[in-house]
Amino acid sequence: MKKTSGRLADGREIVYYDLSDDAVRTAVDRRPMPATEALSQIRHDPLLDEWIGVTAHRNARTYHPPADECPLCPSREGRMSEIPEPDYDVAVFENRFPSFHGAPGKEETEDSAGLFRHAPGAGRCEVVSFTSDHQASFADLDEEQARLVLDVWTDRTADLSRSPGVEQVYCFENRGEEIGVTLSHPHGQIYGYPFTTPRTVRMLRSVAEHAAKAGGNLFDDLVAAERAAQERVVIEGEHWTAFVPYAAHWPYEVHLYPRSRVPDLLALGEEARAEFPRIYLELLRRFDRLFGERESRTPYIAAWHQAPFPGGSADSPVDSSVDGDPRLAARDEFALHLELFTIRRAPGKLKFLAGSESGMNVFINDVPPEAAAQRLREVAS
């Protein structure tokens, strides 16, 4: 893998990742663009003890452009895109409309009771274009290309984990207009959060409680139990296990774990890396076969869950030093895994987050996990 870094016209970084060591990246972005101005803030919700982002500038982001104006396609004569080169393997660049951006700053309180707390929305958000082919999807990549994307996710995790204020790195892909995607070109995103996300905090708390009550590691015990039960296992490789979880939230949801527990992509061994493309591409292709040819591109979210970095940066505005805070649990207790799910529950029917899910965070799943796993086994290649 060859890595080449450059700058876009407004100062944002762009990084090319090429399969060939002979690749040369010299194209210059000549668009007349002002410097990026992102006004990100995070605010604390005292009832839920969660941080949320406030990002008014994102209202102006690109929305469903025509195919010939796609900002992720290579640039060509007369039409410059976000990617100046005429072709590429994988390109990563700073999001023009980031949810989190810039250097950390001090947390401030707006009221005497300390209920209204805010801080700069520090961090970094990146776009990862998986291929220059506008008509493709991740499932269309070959194993060599998919391995390159895995290596890109790993390299970006390493870089972002060293960024001031970043406490957790999240690599993910949204696919399909039903999910809310505004660009149809095959791509994903990476967020460098200035705090540990609420979902991860809950996982770490559950891991700590399980260790106190039963001993052992909760992630290990869950994966072992699913492998022993077998009825929800979708794919078993030598180094990966994919299964529909016993209490799946979504109609079709698969969790993919490496056999050897590691906290993040940086710690993933070479044998697991080598096997990942075959397993993951097969999962994506099964998702595309779930609902027949008429709906051959199933909308989905694919999300890597990685351990936060202890305490984040020394400049982090969010206090992670509270005694007993689950974010301070040993990183090696967390298990790297990927969660893949679709909001489609049947041909032509979507699973909407309505009153129970959105209002109370209580999911109601119309598809029994065992039935979902059976269906995913039936559509194997």
Rank of each mutant, 00 (worst) to 15 (best):
T4G: 01
S5W: 02
S5R: 14
R7Y: 10
A9R: 06
E13F: 01
V24D: 15
A27F: 01
R31V: 06
P32Q: 11
P34V: 09
A35Y: 02
E37K: 13
A38I: 03
L39M: 05
L47K: 09
W51E: 11
A56T: 13
R61G: 02
D68E: 15
D68K: 13
G78Q: 09
R79W: 10
M80V: 10
S81L: 09
A91K: 02
A91L: 10
E94F: 00
N95Q: 05
F97A: 12
S99F: 05
A103I: 08
K106E: 14
E108T: 12
A113Y: 01
F116C: 03
R117D: 03
A119K: 04
H134P: 09
Q135V: 05
E144V: 14
R147T: 02
V149Y: 00
D151V: 00
V152N: 09
A158N: 11
R162N: 14
R162L: 14
R162P: 02
P164H: 05
E173W: 05
R175H: 13
L183V: 15
G188A: 02
I190D: 05
R205S: 15
V207H: 05
H210K: 06
A211T: 07
A211Q: 15
A212F: 00
K213I: 13
L218G: 03
A225K: 13
G237F: 01
P245E: 10
A248F: 01
H249V: 07
E253N: 06
H255C: 12
R259G: 01
D264E: 08
A267L: 05
L268A: 06
A274M: 01
R278D: 13
Y280C: 01
L284I: 04
F287R: 01
R289W: 02
A303Q: 10
P308C: 06
A314N: 04
S320A: 15
S321Q: 12
P326E: 05
L328K: 08
A330G: 11
L340W: 06
I343Y: 07
P347K: 08
P368A: 13
E370R: 13
A371C: 07
A371D: 15
R375S: 01
R377M: 00
V379W: 03
